[in-house]
């Protein structure tokens, strides 16, 4: 409850109101686009190699293709990262780990599935030990190819950035 100077009395939860106001403000155009621009250029994928596509992922972070120019730099710990990059096949054992890693990451977080294996098992579609990423995680971008070329990785990053800047992926609510 707040008493104004002129004697009128406002009833309500101040904290909640403030949060609402903040959410309103942050969702308004200049701040919102600034925020989304910021998120789009600070993508930190976690070091989480799941299978052989990791070799091409490594190449895409290296000098020739250099995904760091998109603000995309692999980082060590899941607590400080916001992109989970599934580099190829997820085996059953690895799927568990993928879920742990995903749950540890702070919001907003994104998932990119790389390779034919990341889509539907690829060449290992009938193996007894693979899991499709889309069954266990919300995947935002898929990269086809076996293995996808580093250019395709770069394209996936650009796609993710575009999605973020179109405001589809990140919502800010009370």
């Amino acid at each position: 409850m707040v008493c104004a100077l002129d004697g009128s009395m406002w009833v309500g939860n101040l904290e909640k109101a403030a949060r609402k106001a903040a959410a309103w403000l942050v969702n308004k155009t200049p701040i919102r686009s600034l925020r989304e621009w910021g998120i789009a250029f600070s993508l930190w994928p976690v070091h989480f190699t799941t299978a052989c596509c990791g070799a091409e992922f490594g190449a895409s972070a290296a000098p020739k293709f250099d995904t760091e120019r998109f603000g995309f730099l692999p980082f060590i710990a899941s607590r400080q990262c916001n992109v989970l990059f599934i580099e190829g096949t997820l085996s059953k054992k690895m799927a568990e780990a993928a879920i742990w890693v995903y749950e540890q990451m702070p919001d907003p977080k994104f998932v990119i599935a790389m390779g034919a294996c990341g889509i539907d098992g690829g060449i290992f579609w009938n193996s007894y030990n693979v899991v499709r990423p889309k069954d266990i995680l919300p995947v935002h971008v898929y990269i086809p190819g076996c293995p996808p070329r580093p250019e395709a990785v770069a394209q996936a990053i650009i796609m993710l950035q575009r999605k973020i800047r179109e405001g589809e992926l990140v919502t800010y609510e009370v």
């Binding site: 799941t50 299978a51 052989c52 096949t89 085996s91 054992k93 690895m94 780990a97 290992f124 009938n126 193996s127 007894y128 030990n129 693979v130």
Partner: peptide, 14 residues
């Protein structure tokens, strides 16, 4: 180990 076990030997049989 076994985090990337994808059963190549078995798949080769089919």
């Amino acid at each position: 180990i076994g985090y990337v076990h994808r059963s190549v030997e078995k798949l080769a049989e089919v």
